[in-house]
């Protein structure tokens, strides 16, 4: 069975119709890049999946169940998103990673995970894969560069190993090298499903499956 099945007659944002007749499916572990011109509806399409844009006519199912039947926090704890410019509180990096552990939905699902040896191992693996190291955990967030902040925001989500990861232009403010590290790390080190938006040519070349938006339609292509 498909993990995600999208069947939309129409999708709009701010009262304007952006897409029509969208029929897409994703299996567990699929990694897909959404391409299209600015304003064509990439983010709006991505945001229907985590109920951040409920302005659509049609049905989206996750594990065969309509996403509107999930409690929003339950759905968004399994389909997690990282934004273009991450928001991080004025704390140190470790506390930034702890923030989502204050949400009931995560503590319910992973009891006592934060701070355990398994958790530390997992976080260290991600830090290393992203070209950072353990010493970062004690640094104040305010001392990080834009690229370091973005990687920290990614690890903040990856520590929960969400079933689906949504990445909304997370590479747009990064230098070429950092952007490539992040792309290959997500393709190689993360086993879950990923839906990403990126204008970076490196991402566009290395992601084999794409959803191309053109004239209000979404075209699927697989290299």
């Amino acid at each position: 069975m498909e993990l995600l099945k999208i069947d939309l007659e129409s999708l709009s944002f701010d009262g304007k119709e952006l897409l029509r007749e969208v029929h897409l499916t994703l299996k567990k572990g699929d990694k897909v890049l959404i391409k299209g011109a600015t304003g064509s509806g990439k983010t709006s399409l991505m945001h229907t999946i985590n109920l951040m844009n409920p302005n659509y006519i049609g049905t989206i199912t996750f594990h065969g169940r309509d996403i509107r039947q999930y409690a929003p926090d339950e759905l968004r704890s399994r389909i997690m998103e990282v934004m273009q410019e991450p928001w991080l509180d004025n704390t140190n990096c470790l506390e930034a990673l702890q923030e989502p552990w204050t949400y009931a939905i995560h503590t319910k699902k992973h009891p006592a995970s934060f701070g355990t040896e398994t958790w530390k191992q997992k976080v260290n693996n991600y830090l290393e894969a992203f070209g950072l190291d353990e010493t970062y955990l004690n640094k104040p967030v305010s001392q990080l560069s834009g690229g370091e902040k973005q990687r920290l925001a990614l690890i903040r989500v990856l520590q929960f190993e969400p079933e689906v990861l949504l990445l909304d232009e997370i590479s747009s403010a990064l230098d070429q090298n950092t952007s490539s590290i992040i792309s290959s790390c997500i393709l190689n080190n993360f086993s879950g499903t990923v839906i990403a938006i990126s204008h970076d040519p490196h991402w566009q070349n290395s992601w084999k499956k794409t959803w191309q938006i053109e004239n209000k339609k979404v075209h699927l292509s697989e290299v």
Binding site: A71, D73, R76, S77, E81, W87, P100, A104, I105
Partner: peptide, 16 residues
């Protein structure tokens, strides 16, 4: 708003 949206896309409920 950015902080608010970041919390909900990571699974925070309304109260959190």
């Amino acid at each position: 708003w950015k902080a608010y949206y970041t919390r909900i896309i990571m699974g925070a409920n309304q109260q959190e």
